[in-house]
Every structure is written in structure tokens, then in C-alpha cells.
Design a protein around this nucleic acid. Sequence first.
DNA 1: CGTTTGTTTGACGTTACTCAAATCTCGTGG
DNA 2: CCACGAGATTTGAGTAACGTCAAACAAACG
Lengths: 257, 257
Amino acid sequence: MAEIPEGCSRCALFFRTNFFCSVLRPNLLSELSERSSHRVLKAKEYVSWDMLEARPVFGIAEGILGVRRIQQDGRGTIAAFFVPGDIVDLRGAPERLQSDLTALTRTEVCHLSPAVFDKILSNCDEAREIAWKSLQSQSFRLIEQTAELPKKRAAEKLAWFICEFRRFHGIDGVNGAQGPLFRVPFKNVDLADYLGIQPETISRSFRCLESKGAIRLLRSNLVEILDQKLLLAIASRDPAGVAPLREARSFRILRVS
Amino acid sequence: MAEIPEGCSRCALFFRTNFFCSVLRPNLLSELSERSSHRVLKAKEYVSWDMLEARPVFGIAEGILGVRRIQQDGRGTIAAFFVPGDIVDLRGAPERLQSDLTALTRTEVCHLSPAVFDKILSNCDEAREIAWKSLQSQSFRLIEQTAELPKKRAAEKLAWFICEFRRFHGIDGVNGAQGPLFRVPFKNVDLADYLGIQPETISRSFRCLESKGAIRLLRSNLVEILDQKLLLAIASRDPAGVAPLREARSFRILRVS
DNA sequence: CGTTTGTTTGACGTTACTCAAATCTCGTGG
DNA sequence: CCACGAGATTTGAGTAACGTCAAACAAACG
């Protein structure tokens, strides 16, 4: 009977309950461990898509990994992100899904051997369920985001993000507590790419939420939530909190002949 | 040894190769069949979210099923759609994923018994792989869409949709042929909800693509593709095809004191 | 064949993007 | 530990791009 592999004993994928590796029997775990590689990424480091073809199956142990695409004109979009516990299988991602995986914060991933991974899916019901649920949950997040974001105004998007992220991911100390403080887990620039707006607009939207009395911006990236209900109302476009970004200007338009 | 169940013999999920039921052994198939229900939806019929809680696992045999959310202010968004062959598992979709499933065209779905479905995942590697790949592919479509749409202009979105849909889904006769004709597979209103723009804008964008010489609008919903390369260039924002929706207006603004 | 539902068009309003400049932060090396 | 510089944030002014509304038209449906 195999021992618990050295590398795994400190990896969240193993020691946190309901994470993928925590339910594996020792012999499967050590087989997986031998052919996998744990890796730490600093914020802003990225895994290029080409690299991924060699190691397309991985789990997230810590941090946040974003799927970022750079377009011709240089602007980027963060289409999705993966969080601790996610099991990601990018095998067969069609070639045109050309994006890289950017670490939005310090991130630990463990690349898994696809062969052993498949073997586990086939043999271990419990692990398969965890992987399945993770894949499901990735889809749900994407659907939620796609359903909510496109028709919202900038300030509404921001409010939505704050509410949504607090609900789902009690990631670091501050956010875990569910207190009135919220730390935006990554740079505003990245947040802008995720919400599909410009960094300048993020800034103005924070101002807007402040002026409504929903939040207070303590430092860059640290928000105090003053009125959760109002924030929700703004996020979901309740009449309570309609939030135009600036006051309407009144002017007259003269057509130039 | 069980016979092939009557209902299944005409269902695409069974008779099309690489669809879920096609790889099941007869005894598993008939066990699944007994506890499942095939259902035909006319266009615009929908399955409410509440209904889904009872039967959250299903496969698409024909047609297109959209995930639609109606917001407070009455506007809708189609966050995703499912196409023939997709195996969908909405168990545990958190309550706030409140959307219904709308048939965008005539659609045939088969609700599967969750219990038997799980048994199949556990016992039949081949079927599990198909279901897994389907779930993956649903994620990829969502990522692709989220990566591409938000920062595009309306005409670019439309061009993207045409190219993308042709690539992926050779669904009906016209589109299957990959000829120069493309039939928009659903109503423009739904297309607008999917692309996150207004129906009026869809109309203007078709005009815009026509004026660039990329397409010709034969009838409502039937497009002739005149210049595939140009269309792609517009979709991906190549300098070749920058596509403003209307000519810039020139006027002067006078502030009212 | 009428009623409803979807599409087109025009005129106008609103929102957020763009560009540029000032300020701020943070990581790094001295 | 401090100073420096690259990168991030903020602000303002101007404008592009789409939304909104309304009305005419067309198509689909029974």
C-alpha cells in the first residue's frame, strides 16, 4: 500500500475535503502524483495555449486563473476564471479557442496526467462526481455571467460582481468573513477585462456606487459595503437603485449644414 | 436480452453515431428508456426552471434549446443554447440561475432518469466519454462566446455569429451544405437577445454587412455569403473590415446654460 | 383574412469609449 | 531602506456607437 506522496500532502487538492484528490485511494493517488506536476504561478504569469496542449488537464489548488484572450487590436477579454477546487479539462479545446491562462493572483495548479485522470473517472465514482460537479459549476458560472452582464450598465455590472463574488468565493481572509469588507481579488484592469468595460469606467463606477451610498472605497481594491440591499438592487436593476454613470447633460444639437 | 425500445429507435440520440444512447448496450438502453421521457417542443414553447427541478438531466435530439433569462425590466437574454447531441445536466443548478429553457425552433428533448444516468456514467466508459465531451463542449462554446462578444461592435457580432454557427453546426439542409447560403436558425429577436443587442440593431447590422459587400439578405433569415474572407475579417476586427454601423454625424454641441 | 407578431426606418438620447494628462502604487534594484 | 520607474488609477472633455421610441410595413398564424 502506497504512502501519501510528499508533494500532495500540502496541496489543497488533497487536504481540503471534497477536493478531487482527497477522495482517492492511496494507490491511485500515488499513481496520479508520479505523473503530475505541481506548479506555482506568480500573478501575471501565464500558461500559453500551446503549452496547454501538452498538459490540458489540471486542478486549481490556490488562487485564481483567468482565461484571457487578446484580440487583434490589442484589447483583452477575460472570459472566465477558475478557482480553487476546479478541475479543468481542456483536451480537445478547438484550436480557435486561442486564449492563454493568466494567473490573476498567485496561483497553484497541478497538471494531471490525462491517462491517469481518465482511469480515475472510470474507477472512482466519488472522484468522478467531484470532477463532474466542477465542470458543471464552471458551466453554471459562465451561464450566469453571460445571462447577467451583457445588458447591464457599467455600475450595475460592478455591483453584480461584488455581490456575486462574495456569494461564491470566500477566498481570502477578508472575503471569507462575509463581513462588510470586500477585497477585489485582482487588479482593476483585469476586472475591466472581465466585465467587458474600460478601466476608466471601473473607476467612475466605483465613484457612482459611492455616491449612491452603497459602498465606500477604502483603498484601491478594498471596499466597505455600506448597504448590501441597495447594492443588490442596483445590480439587478431594481427601480430602487437606478444608476446612471453621470448626470444627464442638457444640451442642444445643431446639425452642421 | 432486451429489444431496442420502440421510442428510441427513431430518436437521434440513439440512431446518430456518437450520440449518447448509440453506445449503450441494449439492457442499459432499455432500462434508461423505461424511466425517461421523450418530448417535442414547438418553437417558443418553454420548460420553466421549476419544471426542470424534477427532470434536470436531458439530451437534445433535434432543434435548438436556449437558456433565456428575463430581467426585472422585461428584457431578455439568451445566455446559451443547446444543440442536437448535447447532454445536459442541470442538477444542482443553484436557485439563482433562474432562467427557462426556450425552444428556439421545433425541438426534441429526452429527459433522462438521473439515477440511471449516473449508473451509466459509472458503468459505461464510452457513454461517459460522450457525456463528458458534451459538457466540455458546452463550456467551450460559452467561453468562446464570452471571449468574443463583449468587445465587438454590433455588425462584428453578427458577422461572428454567422461564421461561428456555420463552422459548428451543420444543422439543417441549407447550413449543412456549407454552400454560400446561411439560414439564421432562429428569429432575429432571439438572435438579438443572444448577441446582447436590440432587434433594430440586428437589422441595421445586416444592412451594414450588405453595404460592405460581405453578404446579401435574400429573405428575412436567409443570407447569401458573398465574401467569406471579408466576413471573417469583419468578425475579427481585422483592419480590412472595420465596420461602423452608420456614418459619423457631424454636428456641434452647445451647452445650455 | 384579420390579428398578432416580427422587422424596418428615422430621429433623437444615453452611455461608455477614447485620448490625454496628472497622480498614485508597487515591485525592484541599489 | 529608500529611490526610481513601470504600470495602474483617476479626471476631464469630446465623440462614437447603440439604445429608445414611434410609426409604417411585412410575415406568420390560425
